[in-house]
Nucleic acid binder design. Sequence first.
DNA 1: AAGTGGTCTAGACCACCTC
DNA 2: AGGTGGTCTAGACCACTTC
Lengths: 239, 239
Amino acid sequence: MQNKYIEIYKRIADQIQDGLYAPGTKLPSEHELMNQFDTSRETIRKALNLLAQNGFIQKIQGKGSVVLDAQKFDFPVSGLVSFRELAEKMGQRFRTHVEDLAYEKPAEEIRAKLQIPAGGHIWRVLRVREIDGERIILDKDYLNSTYVDHLTKEICEDSIYQYIEGDLGLTISFAKKEIVVEEPTEEDRRLLELNGHMNIVVVRNFVYLDDATLFQYTESRHRPDKFRFVDFARRSHGK
Amino acid sequence: MQNKYIEIYKRIADQIQDGLYAPGTKLPSEHELMNQFDTSRETIRKALNLLAQNGFIQKIQGKGSVVLDAQKFDFPVSGLVSFRELAEKMGQRFRTHVEDLAYEKPAEEIRAKLQIPAGGHIWRVLRVREIDGERIILDKDYLNSTYVDHLTKEICEDSIYQYIEGDLGLTISFAKKEIVVEEPTEEDRRLLELNGHMNIVVVRNFVYLDDATLFQYTESRHRPDKFRFVDFARRSHGK
DNA sequence: AAGTGGTCTAGACCACCTC
DNA sequence: AGGTGGTCTAGACCACTTC
């Protein structure tokens, strides 16, 4: 399949989610897992570190790896999850309306954000997300056209990410996210059902590829009463 | 000092922040760093992985480790940073008002959240954060008294985290965070200067210790116009 | 072909917890 | 003392980039 340690990580993660290892109990020791998966200790440790990073276990020196009760209904709204994955995971009925799709010279503000050279072009996508029949989220995407030369309404209605990673073979590796609360614009009022809300939650995302090039800037504008952000944060070593 | 790989991580992180390695340029190769720090490759790689996790570099196979331009003014509001660290980093004038401090039997809702046995006690702390002269944030802390038997107004005015980690020797290891937008309560209106805002950003934090015990539940209630959350998310391997 | 990072191994020693 | 996880080493082989 893939790398050994990722296989082991997935195996154990599945076992935890299937309840084979109950929250509060301990995983087998690293030595036992070595035998069980017929591999070296460092490889087991890489898999366990992944499990710890993703909130499945907590390693305690001298004792063992305790299974946490995370992942229950704490679907990771965090990180780089796309709307489509999210909506599917939450089992809600959702629809995507592509309001606008254009290949164009970017506005100065966007050009600067995406670090596009003068004269360069971008894809601009405007989509409204409907959840359970209500127009809740306005997604404004700006994509560096160096990497995406072709984009259609159909792709935008499905999942841009799937197209980028699946069909184009690009790899998204990290993102910088900012969450603030603002007053709705005229556009927000026109395209969303705000129901009188005087605020809107704006999630700004800078998405980078494998090779550290800035690839996409996204503004996701949420009706405040339907917004929820969940995060699992492990303490990192000091500055 | 400490562990070798953490020392190396800090050294390189400092060098990046001091501009010794400019954004867009590459770090020396792992082999060179091995010689430079007189250590093994795996140890160098641990340090580099820390740098990548924290947004300092991006490793590219076959090419090298590219220095990112993060950390500029992207103070990590993310993760487990305390208000005090934050306020100091942002260089803003801030004050903390301790509105209430009590050792008591928890309300049922809090008891359930903190998983306190019937009859157990907690510390409840109510604090208002003032930034540049305005009362912006209402912090409601609930601490498991098993770990903190003593708490004073002075400690709460300074930094509870510093007391817990510095004086008590406990180690905070991870937290589950939730961000939602709600309508202000009567208490919010009384204690904060809401200036007519009809929404309030609520950050709920479950804080865990080293040994995976749930230690603290915190509600941080922010005036929406002054709220900003920044996050750096690296893509993790699939579910 | 040479240089880079990615994975995997086998073994050593240490720090911490439990008995 | 024995078991556990934490760190570190030296070396091997692979995948990718660059020339």
